[in-house]
């Protein structure tokens, strides 16, 4: 019996796993927090596109031998701000514009890695995430972005709430909506940047959407969503990462599947009430 119990702790004997699970858990909480704004503003597609845009920056910085966080960070934040502007101004069809900008960035990254990179291995690591490459700097980076996000969301809570609920009236009432949106897109870009190595480009948008959607089914309060969603994100990331060791599956895929399972359970348990609440979310 004690042998089985001891076996449950086996993964924690490996430093790479400990690093990975710490980054994944903080990333889950962080994505859960920012995911609240993503789902309530109908920005799920932007989150998806942004992760593809950051991929371009990651590839370019690898090829040009620039530090990943610097190269992909500048690229990602710039893409985030541009996407935010496009979505807000609706100059041309926002979905089409975002699709073009982000997939072009993604394709450029892919082409750069094909031509100059270490080809398949690094592409797979960026697309699907990898716990093997997680270093102390990743823990520091994800923690720093998480702390920054919490501080900003708490300090500007009301402005964020007003600008999310009713941007036009918020603007008239003195809230600098364009600034708030740029800030949000910047945080979103940084989040994708620091979590991409573990979760991967293709699955990160799910981590932004699922915890917040589950939280929305559980509560009618914006303030409560802001702490329920990070908890769900952290729990699904921790559990998914842990299970992936025993199931010998991709960590990011297991994290997303764990989150999806939570979504299905909450959807079933909350019944009509939960479905009514979630029915108003855009683009889920």
């Amino acid at each position: 019996m004690s042998f089985v119990f001891a076996g449950l702790f086996t993964p924690f004997h490996y430093q790479f796993f400990n690093n990975g699970i710490i980054v994944a858990t903080i990333a889950g909480a962080l994505c859960g927090l920012l995911g609240v704004f993503v789902v309530l503003r109908g920005m799920s597609y932007i989150g998806h596109g942004l992760s593809h845009a950051v991929f371009g920056g990651a590839a370019a910085s690898a090829v040009m031998n620039i530090n990943y966080f610097v190269g992909a960070g500048v690229w990602g934040v710039a893409s985030g701000v541009i996407i935010g502007r496009i979505a807000r101004r609706r100059l041309i069809g926002a979905d089409a514009a975002i699709g073009v900008v982000t997939t072009a960035s993604f394709a450029l990254g892919l082409a750069l890695l094909n031509r100059y990179g270490q080809a398949k291995k690094s592409i797979e690591a960026v697309l699907f995430g990898s716990v093997l490459g997680v270093k102390t700097i990743d823990i520091v980076a994800v923690s720093a972005v998480a702390i920054l996000s919490v501080v900003i969301v708490v300090a500007l809570y009301r402005a964020f709430l007003f600008a999310t609920f009713d941007p036009e009236v918020a603007q008239v009432s003195g809230v600098r909506v364009a600034w708030i949106e740029a800030l949000l897109m910047g945080l979103l870009s940084l989040t994708i940047l620091v979590t991409m190595r573990v979760i991967g480009t293709l699955l990160i948008s799910a981590l932004l959407v699922i915890p917040a959607s589950v939280a929305r089914m559980l509560t009618n309060s914006f303030a409560r969503m802001l702490w329920i969603s990070p908890i769900i994100g952290a729990v699904s990331a921790f559990t998914g990462m842990y299970l992936s060791y025993f199931l010998d599956t991709s960590a990011s895929a297991t994290i997303i599947l764990t989150g999806t399972l939570m979504f299905i359970v909450v959807y079933a348990v909350t019944g009509l009430r939960g479905r009514t609440r979630i029915s108003g979310l855009h683009h889920i």
């Binding site: 007003f162 999310t164 809230v175 009514t276 108003g280």
Partner: peptide, 21 residues
Amino acid sequence: NFPVTVLEVVAMTRSSTGRLP
């Protein structure tokens, strides 16, 4: 469908001055 109460909606207009969440 946005998750806000009546009180939260009314208090929103002090967003540019209110510092506490």
